[in-house]
Design a protein around this nucleic acid. Structure first.
Lengths: 230, 230
DNA sequence: CGGGTTTTTGACTCTTTTCAATACAGGTGG
DNA sequence: CCACCTGTATTGAAAAGAGTCAAAAACCCG
């Protein structure tokens, strides 16, 4: 069955009272998703909301003319597919398992229930969405004001922060990520990303590889990203 | 004093009980802002949250290297400056009055109060932030996948929707907006915006002018924006 | 009627994309 | 176990879209 400890430990449910947690556990269903599987499809009726327990998801959107775009990466502990909280009835994107992953799902109706009776959960969720809004604005500002190299640097730094594993002085991105993926996160082409990363390799900033990215000099990347005023 | 009807009518406060509304009214302070004034400054300690009663604000951010960027336009009835809901203690941007404007302000602490005791307000706020997140993702997708003309078209369509006034078959943007402004909303330069709009004028899509924009053919713009699959 | 701001337009430059070809890695099946 | 095949990555050359630089025109306010 589902591990109560596990659910209890999720930051998003912090402060929920015991009875609410019980109800939550009673209705949760655990699912496994093999690498490459989708949890649900963009445009589908939003019937459930989810928490990622293990693994890593890429949330992708496809535009009217077929171009692809990565909205975000879902990391363990993250809530996703909460379309209702956005006042939508359909999922806006498609989460794809970048590695074998495990999720918990609840019927969307439960969300309203919990929200109504647990101000704390409502506030938690609001702040979580708020932080995501903040992050989205950061990306928008980048896309507006920076050129490609800076945007790619930012994307890589973000990946390092949320999905980076330290090994020695290096940080490895903990899931398979292609040049194409990075291009779809930064609004450029895989060719340009490849060129940029190759160039960074010669400068010793990163080490690349097939679906692999290792950051060797985070500070150097930050300098390129132009965060700190020079 | 402050008009209770007015506050009561704000969608964001829908469903608030009488006592909460009383408290709200007791702590509200009304302020006027002449065209060009700022309500607060980016980076300032976030002491209050606001509702725009009348007028129109442009929320601007300045990057480390001095470039400017317009995050959004605040329209009457909109909540803004709710940094706390995003888990921030400082304002992320600077709201500038595009026309003479009137705001209501509350001490930030009140927000927590109301949130704690009024699940409905928490849910309203959450959904409002959620919609803004959705909108931000739309813009991100645009910035990633579309070229400048499409992005400018989108920006103009959005302006028409949220700040457009119909006069006959035309829609006029209801506040002074420069080419520079549009450039800062779409991540391009005023020169490019000027060229694009001039070109649109010759095609009869819009009518321009100094700090003025009138949409003559919204459907035509939508086609340019590439929303509908051709 | 100035004087400053905003807009338009042209010519040139440069970053990034597009097009194209090759190299490489890893899994599959003979 | 090796050859093959597919998806990924690299790299070069050409093309294009948008930015930069520069100057003039239009407009509004006082």
């Amino acid at each position: 069955m589902i591990d109560r400890e596990l659910v209890d430990a999720l930051p998003i449910f912090h402060g929920l009272d015991a009875s609410a947690l019980d109800k939550l556990l009673a209705h949760a269903s655990q699912r496994s998703h093999a690498k490459g599987d989708t949890v649900f499809q963009q445009g589908e009726e939003a019937t459930h909301f989810y928490v990622l327990l293990r693994g890593r998801l890429k949330v992708q959107q496809v535009t009217a003319d077929g171009q692809q775009f990565i909205v975000r990466v879902v990391n363990p502990g993250d809530l996703f597919g909460f379309a209702m909280a956005l006042g939508r009835t359909q999922y806006p994107g498609t989460p794809i398992a970048a590695v074998d992953s495990v999720t918990l799902a609840w019927p969307m109706g439960m969300m309203n229930d919990i929200l109504q009776h647990n101000p704390t959960f409502a506030i938690n969720t609001m702040q979580m969405i708020g932080q995501r809004l903040d992050a989205a604005h950061d990306r928008l500002r980048e896309m507006s004001t920076q050129e490609v190299e800076g945007r790619v640097a930012h994307a890589v730094i973000r990946l390092a922060q949320e999905a980076g594993v330290k090994s020695g002085s290096e940080i490895r991105i903990d899931f398979p990520i292609s040049r194409q993926d990075i291009a779809e996160m930064t609004g450029t082409t895989l060719h340009t990303v490849s060129r940029i990363i190759s160039h960074w390799e010669t400068k010793g900033l990163v080490k690349g590889g097939r679906q692999l990215l290792v950051i060797a000099d985070l500070a150097g990347l930050r300098r390129l990203a132009g965060d700190e005023a020079s």
